[in-house]
Amino acid sequence: MNLISTLKTCFCLTIAISQSITTSGQELRIDHVITVVPNLDEAIDEYGKMGFSVKKGRLHDNGLTNAHIKFQNQSSIELMSIVGEPKDEMARNYQSLLNAGIKGAYLALSGLSLDSIEVALIRLSVKYEISKDASWTYVTFPDESEYHHIFFIIYHSEHTSLENLFKHQNKVDGFENIKIEGSNKLTELFEEFGLKPVITESHLSSTFPTKTGSITVIPQKTQDQRYQVVELSFDEDLKLKLF
């Protein structure tokens, strides 16, 4: 293969990868938000009074216990708490968030293949970590990363829930908007996946529509804390502030 042919091949591969990321970006969606609560039973009662149907999870070996609020479009809220002493690194991480008073711990995103996620992160020179089990693959970021409060989840099979879990007395069927702290690097990441920010009056925030609600990136409120999810909006009358 001569030099010209090689250059043409490299150019075509670059275009193909770029188009693949853009196409994948249109599938990027809000999967779930993890909020940390000091007492799970009290949180379940509180969300129940707001009209949500809450499915209690189980106590895990590491001390974590959880509950879920699921929506028809497959997005959800996960309430996370700790019983007793944390027994592994993950549980200790949630304990530290609880101690710091951070409620909006993580925004989980899905809808992308592992390949497309890795291509985008490599293009941006972003450090990341991959963990896998039988049901899913996680792409997470180090604590010192600009993206430590988000992660990607790739399901290995279709996940479904009982229909009655989607029915809420308040008639909510999913997120309208999620506000999350972040810098320009987070907006660049979303744009790398093909998400297009909508024009708003504010020059300090960027809003990205997805299939399961929009994501608004806002400046950090408290400089000496980690980035966090600060608000969940379901409609004009129902907004949950996590900050």
Rank of each mutant, 00 (worst) to 15 (best):
I102S: 01
N184K: 15
S20D: 13
K185M: 13
K87Q: 11
L98I: 02
S75H: 09
V172I: 15
S206N: 09
H149L: 01
S96H: 12
E176C: 01
D143Y: 12
K221L: 14
T200I: 10
L98E: 05
S53H: 09
S135I: 12
V139K: 00
V198Y: 02
K70C: 14
K8F: 04
D237K: 15
L59R: 12
T35P: 00
D31P: 03
D173T: 14
I102E: 09
K171I: 02
G101L: 06
G194M: 07
Q74F: 11
T222S: 11
F208R: 01
F152M: 02
N39L: 13
Q225H: 11
E118D: 05
S157M: 04
P197C: 03
Q169V: 03
D45S: 10
N177T: 08
F141V: 01
H159Q: 15
N39G: 00
S205F: 05
V126I: 15
T222D: 04
I34Y: 02
H156M: 03
I178S: 04
I4G: 00
S214Y: 05
A91V: 05
G182M: 05
K179T: 02
D143N: 12
S125L: 09
F234A: 07
H32F: 08
L7D: 03
L13A: 06
S110M: 03
G57V: 01
N62I: 07
S205W: 11
E27M: 06
G174A: 12
K211S: 15
P38L: 08
I153E: 11
F152H: 02
N73K: 12
D143M: 06
K221R: 14
Q220G: 06
I154H: 09
I218G: 03
K221V: 07
Q225F: 09
S18M: 07
A91I: 04
S24Y: 06
G174C: 03
P209A: 07
I178C: 06
I122P: 00
F11V: 04
I21V: 10
R92D: 05
I77K: 13
E46N: 08
P86Y: 14
P197G: 01
P219C: 08
S110Q: 09
F208Y: 13
S206L: 12
Q228F: 03
K171D: 08
S145A: 03
E236A: 10
Y138W: 08
V172D: 04
